[in-house]
C-alpha cells in the first residue's frame, strides 16, 4: 500500500467515523494503530493477547437467516446462492436414522426457511449455522503453496487476497466447505471472523444481528469471557471431530446427524 492511499483512507475515515470512534473507547484506541499506518504492529490491539473462537448454540437458532444477510452485507460477499462466508442448514432427521438426514439450505438461509415439513411427521428438525471453524491446525493453511492463507497470532485464519494465486487447493482441503473463489477477484474468500470489527472491539456482524444469541464470539485468552462458562456448563462438540483440525467453532446441541 502506498502512503498517499493510506492518508486518503485516513482522512476519509476520520470524516466519516469521528462520532462513532468517540463513542466506544476500544474502537478509539484501535484507531490509533490505524493512524500509525502499520496496523499489524499497533500497540492497542495486541493479537497475542487474544485467541478467538465462536460458540454456536443450536438450541437457540431459529433459522431467521439474519446472520447470512448481515455477513453478506458486512463483508461484500457475492449474492449468488453458492458463495457464503456463513450459511444455515436445516436438518430433518426421521426416526433414529442419523445416517440419512434430509438437509437443505435454500440460498444458504439468506431468505429464511419456508416451511416444508409437517409438525407431526415423527421427525426432528433443527437449524445448524455454519462458518469457518478457524481451525488451529487448518488444512487450508497447510496446503496453501505461498502463505496466502494463514493463522494470525490471535487464532483467526485469514486470507491475503493480494497474495492469493487462485489455485483453489485450500478449497479442496477444507473439510467443512467454508471457502469459495470470489468471481470478482479470482482469489479465495471465507469468513475472516469480521477481523476488521473484532480488532476494533466490536463483535462479528453475524453475532451482532443474531436475535437469540445463538452465536457468540468468544476470546479464549480472556479469563472473564462468558465462553469459558458456557463450554464448562454445556456438552459441546465441534464439527467433524475425526478431522482433528483443532476447530474453534464450538457447538451446543450438535446432533449426531450433522456433518
Amino acid at each position: 500500500m502506498s502512503d498517499s492511499r493510506t492518508d486518503k483512507n485516513r482522512r476519509e475515515f476520520l470524516l466519516q467515523g469521528t462520532k462513532f470512534i468517540v463513542l466506544t473507547g476500544v474502537a478509539a484506541s484501535a484507531w490509533d494503530y490505524v493512524l500509525a499506518g502499520t496496523p499489524e504492529a499497533a500497540p492497542s490491539y495486541k493479537a497475542s493477547q487474544h485467541w478467538w473462537a465462536m460458540m454456536i448454540d443450536i438450541e437457540k437458532c431459529i433459522g431467521c437467516g439474519g446472520c447470512v444477510r448481515a455477513c453478506k452485507a458486512e463483508n461484500n460477499v457475492p449474492l449468488e446462492p453458492y458463495y457464503f462466508r456463513t450459511w444455515v442448514e436445516r436438518y430433518h432427521v426421521r426416526g433414529e436414522d442419523l445416517a440419512h438426514p434430509d438437509v437443505d439450505t435454500p440460498n444458504g438461509g439468506y431468505d429464511g426457511f419456508p416451511e416444508i415439513y409437517h409438525a407431526d411427521d415423527g421427525a426432528k428438525s433443527f437449524f445448524v449455522p455454519k462458518m469457518c471453524n478457524h481451525c488451529e491446525h487448518s488444512p487450508c493453511v497447510q496446503v496453501c503453496p505461498v502463505g496466502a492463507t494463514f493463522e494470525a497470532p490471535d487464532g483467526v485464519v485469514l486470507v491475503d487476497s493480494a497474495y492469493c494465486l487462485g489455485c483453489r487447493y485450500c478449497v479442496q482441503a477444507c473439510p467443512y466447505g467454508c471457502r469459495y473463489i470470489d468471481p470478482r477477484t479470482n482469489t479465495v474468500d471465507k469468513c475472516s471472523l469480521c477481523y476488521h470489527r473484532i480488532t476494533k472491539g466490536l463483535t462479528t456482524a453475524c453475532c451482532e444481528t443474531c436475535p437469540t444469541g445463538a452465536r457468540q464470539l468468544g476470546d479464549l485468552r480472556n479469563p472473564k469471557d462468558p465462553i469459558h462458562a458456557f463450554i464448562r456448563e454445556h456438552k459441546v462438540q465441534v464439527l467433524k471431530p475425526q478431522m482433528a483440525t483443532g476447530s474453534k467453532a464450538y457447538y451446543n446441541g450438535l446432533d449426531g446427524s450433522v456433518r
Binding site: 490505524v34 452485507a73 494463514f150 491475503d160 477481523y195 470489527r197 456482524a205 444481528t209
Partner: peptide, 17 residues
Amino acid sequence: HYRAPAIGDNMKKPISY
C-alpha cells in the same frame, strides 16, 4: 509464513454494522 501487512489489510475494511 505470510505477509505481515496482510493482517493490517484484513483490519482495514470499512464497517457496515
